[in-house]
Structures are given as C-alpha cells and as structure tokens.
C-alpha cells in the first residue's frame, strides 16, 4: 500500500511537468511576451519603450529556454521557462501581471470559496441520494418515470438560468437575502445561503439521475436476488445491501473533487460576488492576467492529483476487495 502510494506520488512528477510544459507552450510560445505586454497595456499602438519597461518590470525580458547572456548554469536558469514556469513547483506563484502577490491572494481567497463549496457539496449529496433512493425504490412505476423525466428537464436548463432567476426572484423581488456580496464570520450565512440553494438545485437533475443509475445497476446484481431469497423486506434490501455497495462509486466519485473545492466555482462566485478563488480566476481571465491563470492551472492540477490519490485510499476503506499494489 505504501509502495503503491509512493509510486502514485512519483507518477505525479511527470504529469505536473507535462502540465507545466503545456501551459508554458500556451503562454510563451503561441504568444510572445511582447504580445502579452501589449494586451495588458491595451493595444498595438503603444510605444516600444513602454512595452520594454513593462516586460522589465514583470520579468518577461528573458529568452525562453537558453540565455546566452549568462554563463554557466545561469544560462539555463535565468530563462522564462525556469523563472516563470518551473518555479511554480516551489509554490512560489510570484507577482501577478497587475502587480499583486499571488500566493498571498490565494491564501486569503481560499476560505470564502470553501464556505460555498462545502455546504453545496454536502447538501447536494444528501438531496440527490435521497431522491435517487426514492426513484430506485419505485423503479419501473410512474413515480420513477416522471422522476427521471423531471431530472432530464432539470439538467436541460442551463445553470446560468438557475442563478439569474434565483437572484431575481429571491434576491430582488422577495428581497429575502442580499443578491451578492460577502462578509466573514457568522454574517456569512445570509450571503452563503442563496448560492448554496441555487447550486444544489442546479445539480439535482444530473446528480439524481446518476445515482439512480448506480442504484439500479446494483439492484440488478445476483447478490440482491440472494438477499431477496432470504425473505428480506424490500426496504432492508435497499438500505443494507444496495446502499452499501452503491456507496463505493459514490464515495470515490466525491472524494476526487474534494481537494478541488478550494478552487471554488467560477460561475457561482462571480455571480454572487463572493471574493473566492473562483472569482479571482475569472477576473484574471477577463483581465488577461496570465500570471494568475498559470498559477491557478498549476494549483488546480495539484489538487486534482491529490484527489486521485485520495480516491485510491478511499477505495481501500469502502471496498474490502481492493488492496492497492
């Protein structure tokens, strides 16, 4: 098990280097630093010297891979690839193109994201599993059929509609909670509740349908027939036998996204004005601040990979058949 986890961790290194190379290629080879500078400064009619200044200021005034102005090891290290891309491995995210300290921003903005993401995940999970169990219990009846149709309708509506109409009716017409904004501490509640409700409702369609499929798949298996042959009541078959087996794909599916919760939801946070990492990223994208986008891509990858390893560990806990080798 330990050996397995170490091997998985080691496998992370080439993956992260791959991601690093990919983003480096996207930002520095498709577009030259000069293009980035011009985009930041706004337009192509900027004087060359202004561009040069900006590049100097942000450390873009280096060659890509080999610096022939330097000697020795510095020829390889004093390059854009090392200073802008590889340096992410030390979790030194540097300074954003607009001059902010990214690491500091990340540590500040992580928490509001968590405030939204965790309640949405937990409540959503409970709601979806309950609905899915209900549909599975009434399988192949009109309850199930109309439930599935309802799920398909729910998931055919763009998430943006849920947000906009939620804000409009609950926030603007009924004025129950503020439309957007955020405060720390206990007063966070009134800002968090609307995004969480909207997030849960938006996820019901796809979630319920997915869990229903898992339940029905388990219910078609032979051991369920054995359980029924024992004379067990249907509810007991469902709760003891089906749920316990269905938890394997459900738990492992959830564990993989837990680390990524820190990144928050781009759309939610931006609509509801939550100062989390999601809105941080979206602002960076809109302002074309590459330093931040690069840092977030790297961070997101690491969190996802941690999620994958946690999934493996979760498997050994929930499934007695799995032993990692």
């Amino acid at each position: 098990m330990i050996a397995y986890l170490i091997r998985r961790l080691l496998y992370l290194i080439p993956v992260l280097i791959g991601v690093n190379l990919l983003t480096f290629a996207l930002y520095f080879i498709v577009n030259s630093p000069e293009d980035i500078a011009r985009a930041q400064l706004g337009g192509k009619h900027i004087d060359q010297s202004v561009v040069q200044d900006w590049e100097d200021q942000h450390g873009y005034n280096k060659p890509l891979f080999y610096n022939n102005k330097e000697t020795g090891i510095a020829a390889l290290t004093d390059t854009l690839f090392v200073k802008k891309s590889l340096i992410l491995f030390t979790f030194n995210f540097g300074v954003s193109d607009s001059g902010r300290n990214i690491s500091h921003d990340v540590s500040q903005r992580m928490w509001p994201s968590i405030y939204i993401a965790i309640p949405t995940l937990i409540i959503g999970l409970l709601v979806n599993i309950t609905f899915a169990m209900l549909l599975a219990f009434f399988r192949q009846t009109y309850v199930d059929l109309s439930g599935v149709l309802f799920c398909i309708i729910m998931m055919s509506i763009s998430g943006l509609f849920y947000i906009i109409s939620g804000q409009y009716f609950i926030g603007k017409v009924l004025q129950l909670v503020p439309i957007s904004g955020f405060e720390g501490g206990f007063s966070a509640f009134k800002f968090v509740i609307l995004p969480v409700v909207v997030g849960v409702i938006g996820g019901i369609g796809a979630g319920t349908r997915w869990y229903r499929t898992i339940f029905l798949e388990e219910m078609g298996k032979d051991y369920i027939r054995t359980a029924r042959a024992k004379g067990l009541a249907e509810s007991r078959v469902l709760f003891k036998h089906v749920l316990k087996n269905a938890m394997i794909p459900i738990v492992t599916g959830v564990v993989v996204i837990i680390p990524s919760l820190f990144l928050g939801s781009l759309i939610m946070e931006s609509f509801f004005g939550i100062p989390g990492l999601g809105s941080y990223t979206i602002d960076a994208i809109r302002q074309q601040d590459f330093a931040i986008v690069r840092a977030m891509v790297f961070l997101g990858t690491i969190l996802y990979c941690i999620g994958l390893i946690m999934t493996d560990i979760a498997y050994t806990i929930v499934d007695p058949r799995v032993r990692l080798q």
Partner: peptide, 21 residues
C-alpha cells in the same frame, strides 16, 4: 416463506454473495 420454507442456491457463487458484507 422465502428463506424460511423455500431455500435457494444459485448458479454463480462468485456473484451470489454481497461483496461488501
């Protein structure tokens, strides 16, 4: 009656038992 008065043995012993109990 099931299990009490009528017992059943199935073909596939690999899948007839619940894997997580």
């Amino acid at each position: 009656i099931r299990g009490r008065q009528i017992g059943l043995v199935f073909q596939e012993p690999m899948t007839a038992l619940n894997p997580v109990l």
